[in-house]
Nucleic acid binder design. Structure first.
Lengths: 195, 195, 195, 195
DNA sequence: TATGAATGAGCGTTCATTCAT
DNA sequence: CATGAATGAACGCTCATTCAT
């Protein structure tokens, strides 16, 4: 799986052949099929890995007398997600770049994953609105905005940067993780305008 | 091209075969190659179509005594982009879902397209900051956020909705376009917090 | 036909497409098929051209009181053949390089052509033997030897030389035609040994 | 390879399809590509086989006090070459009939092979001249003559004969190998004229 | 538990030929 | 007399998967 992860990450699902994997893993063709049902199956397993890791790190924001302040919880989640992705760059790369158009089953799985995430964001927004913290807005639309923003930034920082050892983006090195998280949260919470 | 657009949109690049296209178009294999150099070529042509349409619709935000207020210009751009995508759902679907991992040349092309878009957003932010309209922030990070937010919402509204005639998302029909644009701009400019 | 001759000569039968020919000739696809039944047919016609030219130049060696001395006649034939080939390098190139393995019909045609030539040589040998000029030998075998020798030399001088502007054969430029003919006749008549 | 050899020999390179080979061999398409990189590759391998066999049989003619008489060595080489070709009729057929116009790489390979052979003949001639055995002549031209003669005779005896089970050449059965070799050497050394 | 030879459906592409205009 | 859009059989090749050993 280590080998497959790396190769899928570098070449994408379609461009990766079983041959690539078994050769890099130093095993025989048959051995591969002893442990994985198909090319699809190992890809599935790989992404499930990341799903599980992310799920263990993203928690619903608690409200209540004993809970930490929501903004602090938010910070925590963002930081932990960023760290998880950082530590699983290859999987993240796969998730964000290639995991679409493989299969309608797979597409559904993916869409479910993002849907669950979006649901969390949405309910946080609704809670915030109920508490008067969040301005009136369409929670569904805004949840999409937030998820999209995070995906794009993560893809940029963890994934695209790796791929371009060229001069292009050299001058503007990616900000460090904590800073990045702060910037994103600030944008999400207060937008662009000066107050 | 109409036929190819539809099929690529539904099945994705890899899952679409020349056979699918010519059969649906009711032409012979040779006829296809009379008009398109290769499978890649027709795909290229298709996306270039959308690129051109979007390019003609997205304009740099002007500042100056004679220019319209920036917020109004922004509204215009968003509205026109939304309309263009609405009218080219299939191409949009291809662009946002499948156009990665086909080819390193193609990946570069795509990444250039998004980069150009991001550049426009970034320079708008810098201008806003110079004018004191936009709060201090990292324009690059925030440009990514905005682009990501737009991509996600567009994908959701124009593309995913179409694909799921199931019950799942039935209850929350997508808001109409103008409303949607307003919501996005509001989020982008003022964030979540009540002021 | 001029165009086809050149292209067939340069690229060979298989590597030449109808497209190559019509494009170079500046005519339409249909026009080609108006004048030639098929790719095979034009190739046929082209070689028939050369066959006719060579046939008009190669004559049975006459013996009799009024005839010129056989050796002189031989010289004449060789010189005329060489000249004809020299003037039809492209056709010669086609004949000697590519005209095999196209078609079993074509192969037969070719083999007939060479057979006729060989027949002439063979009968000349038999005549020579009858006149006591030629030593006892198997006329058939020797006719093959002579034909092969001529083919190889002609191919070398008229055809391969053209194709290699490289340094390889630079130092040994091909001898002039008359010299070459003399050398070949000398070899054929007296062999290698010093007498 | 046995199967491919036979089919290439009968139909020529271009007219032979992978399908022909795998069907005759009773293997699957994929199996073919398991053992051979491409159609070109198996053809290459096949001819390399013959090149190797011929190379092991053709040796430079030695001169010196301990060496056998040159004429005897010549006889030996010719006999061994004829035997090798006799035993590899199919490969010989391929080599002499079809192996041109496949590929510029291939053409070069072939031309190198013939060039090496010609080089041997040429140097033998030069040696013979140095020793006063061979009359003054252009070694290059004569080497071409000899090579051509041999090719033609070999093609005739081993290859064309096989291909025509018709009545045509029936009456003049090919002389036996040793006789044939003697005839060719005699022609080469003493030519046609009675001495 | 591991192997790797064998499979064959399927792919993208070519190109000689036809025929309505 | 000329056109060129249309054809479709055929090709070389790939690669996920199987299964006897």
């Amino acid at each position: 799986m280590d080998v497959a992860r790396t190769i899928f990450s570098n070449k994408g699902y379609h461009a990766t052949s079983i041959d690539d994997i078994i050769e890099a893993a130093g095993i025989a063709r048959g051995t591969f099929y002893l442990y994985f049902e198909s090319k699809r199956a190992i890809f599935d397993e790989l992404l499930d890995e990341l799903f599980a890791r992310l799920a263990s790190v993203v928690r619903r924001i608690e409200v209540g007398p004993t809970a930490a302040p929501p903004e602090e919880q938010l910070h925590g989640i963002v930081e932990r997600v960023m760290e998880t992705l950082q530590q699983n760059r290859e999987l993240a790369r796969i998730l964000l770049r290639e995991a679409v158009g493989i299969d309608s089953d797979f597409d559904r799985k993916l869409s479910d994953f993002w849907g669950r995430l979006r649901g969390l964001i949405e309910s946080a927004i609704r809670n915030g609105q109920a508490m008067g913290l969040v301005r009136p807005c369409d929670p569904s639309v805004v949840a999409h905005c937030i998820l999209g923003a995070v995906k794009e930034v993560v893809f940029w920082v963890f994934i695209e940067h790796r791929a371009s050892p060229s001069v292009r983006d050299q001058k503007q090195a990616p900000p460090d993780l904590t800073l990045l998280g702060k910037e994103m949260i600030a944008f999400t919470l207060t937008g662009l305008f000066t107050r």
